[in-house]
């Protein structure tokens, strides 16, 4: 594998699935997964360019929209995570719970 160039931020390709709008990540197999952990991480400029070019084919094939490369934080001993809060929220969902009905009240 190519050595990471200095100042190069590792990236993954992300998009929204056209029909559902769901957040998806490009995998090593060239498919799209809803899970960030399945994303192929590009660690050099050339890898990133190749990833983007391949993914772009699916924009044309009307599978996805809003394709972008997003930066990934790579730290020893921790699972890779998107660097920005915005992308972490896209990957992991809202940071607030989805509203739910209250538990039945027991009246005294």
């Amino acid at each position: 594998m190519a050595k990471p160039a200095r100042n190069f931020e590792a990236v993954v390709a992300s998009a929204n699935a056209l029909a559902s709008g769901a957040v998806v990540y490009r995998t090593a197999e060239g498919s799209w997964s809803p899970h960030f952990k399945d994303a192929l991480i590009a660690r050099s400029k050339s890898e990133a360019e190749a990833l983007l070019a391949a993914a772009d084919g699916d924009v044309k094939a009307t599978l996805i929209v809003e394709l972008a490369l997003i930066e990934v934080a790579l730290e020893e001993g921790v699972a890779p995570r998107p660097r920005s809060l915005r992308e972490r929220i896209r990957a992991e969902g809202p940071t607030v719970p989805i509203p739910q009905d209250p538990q039945p009240v027991i009246r005294t």
Partner: peptide, 10 residues
């Protein structure tokens, strides 16, 4: 028609 694409979905 009121349809936006937001962070997680339409």
């Amino acid at each position: 028609n009121g349809v936006y694409l937001q962070l997680h979905a339409y």
